[in-house]
Amino acid sequence: MLDRRDVVARLLKDRGEALVITGLGAATYDVAAAGDDARNFYLWGAMGGAALIGLGLALAQPDRPVVVITGDGEQLMGLGAFATIAVQAPANLTIVVLDNGLYGETGGQRSHTSGGTDLAAVARGCGIAAASRVTDQAGVEALAATIATPAGAPRVVVIAVDPAEAPRVLPSRDGAYVRGRFQAALGLAA
């Protein structure tokens, strides 16, 4: 099975101008482990909000690729986001869901994706046509090759990853600092 740290490191290696939002929990640690960057906005809460922060950012910065990296549990708390994003159809938004089938932060309880929920199918059903499931390295490479290039339509890529827990790599928990740093990296007044 794919290792989540390897997947995220590969996706961000050629990130180009991409702006990255992370869903709370392991996805935040995975992105931090790949290397801290002022263009990363790490969530430590606001569960269910990652993809929607990505939407607002993608609409505000239409010339930059925006990549949301989150987990199955975080996305399950905000399934309506797929419908809201589909209506807006931002050309530059990619949502990567690292699907390990469990809630790693809270004791490893099985998530709904272990019980039959197919997040790519949910996204398609909400109107995001470019929604797919990746289970092998070839799929990761194909996504990595286009991560820095806005796809012309929103896309959701669910990547099946090994449920093994990786060592925690903790980025700043100071939300105001991370926000200000991110905005400064875009040349905006914080």
């Binding site: 606001a46 269910g48 929607l52 505000a60 809201t84 926000r179």
Partner: peptide, 22 residues
């Protein structure tokens, strides 16, 4: 105009807008 499926989505969308300068 951004129709939402539930109100809390809007809090997140507007945070993203502010991150991007809108």
């Amino acid at each position: 105009a951004i129709p939402l499926t539930t109100e809390e989505e809007g809090i997140a969308v507007l945070a993203g807008a502010a991150l991007g300068g809108q």
